[in-house]
Simulated assay, not measured.
Amino acid sequence: MAEETPWQQALRYANRANPYPFYEELRKTPVSRQPDGTYVVSTYREIVSLLHDPRVSSDPRKRSGPVPAESSAQPGAEPIREAVISLEPNIITSDPPEHDRDRHMMTPHFVGTPRSPHLISDLEPEIRRLTDGLLDDMRDKTRIDAVDEFAYPLPVTVICKVLGVPVEDESRFHHWIAWTLWTSDPRPPRRRYGTGWQAVARP
């Protein structure tokens, strides 16, 4: 059995708690070809170059060639990939000019308009109140998850306020965001149910 590459090891959920040794190995080779024919780019300069290269696309529908053998071997990989490709592109998975149009539509909500240039800074008292509340909730705990209990709920709650999401719908909005982030994570484990695929709770 072939030895796993640092990238393959970094993707393993068993290594998720501390993937940094594998990232360090990846940085030794800025552009690394993987056994399935794909490439992993792992250093800042090369990544920035790709982000500004018009030949590189974020749209999975523009991918040419068959699914790499390794991905095809993973149970459920092909149906999931086809489902992703069939979805309407969003701001993450679209290229200019569609990406630029969507970004232009979203930006005023967070940087303000000429009539409300201090949109976010005016929320500082509310953000401080939210921050104090989240910290108070952790006061008597001996163990916390900094992401789940602070780094995630604070920005999502502020985003809800900026977008005008009703207070009673915030929990639903949080759920949608969490599900979106989960399903976009590399290779989440899935189990097939009937004709569909359902995510399996991670260990």
Score class of each variant (00 low, 15 high):
L135F: 14
R115F: 14
H174K: 15
E149L: 00
Q8K: 01
Y13F: 11
S72I: 12
S49C: 12
P6M: 03
T43F: 02
T113K: 02
P19C: 04
L163Y: 07
H104R: 15
T180E: 09
L50W: 06
P186W: 03
P97E: 04
A10K: 01
T5P: 00
N18T: 10
N15F: 02
K62L: 08
E82Q: 07
V67S: 06
F22M: 10
G112L: 00
R129D: 14
M106I: 13
P125G: 03
P125M: 02
V158G: 03
P79M: 04
T157Q: 11
E168Y: 03
V167M: 15
L87V: 07
V162Y: 05
Y39V: 03
Y152S: 12
L26C: 01
V165A: 02
P117T: 00
A151T: 10
R55P: 05
L135H: 04
S32Q: 13
R33G: 07
P188C: 02
G112N: 06
T113V: 04
Y152K: 09
R81A: 14
H99C: 00
L11R: 03
M106R: 06
D132V: 11
S71H: 12
W176H: 11
R191L: 11
A10H: 02
R33S: 12
T93V: 08
L119C: 14
R27G: 05
R16I: 15
H104K: 14
A14H: 11
L87R: 05
F110S: 00
L181Y: 12
S86N: 06
W7F: 15
G112P: 10
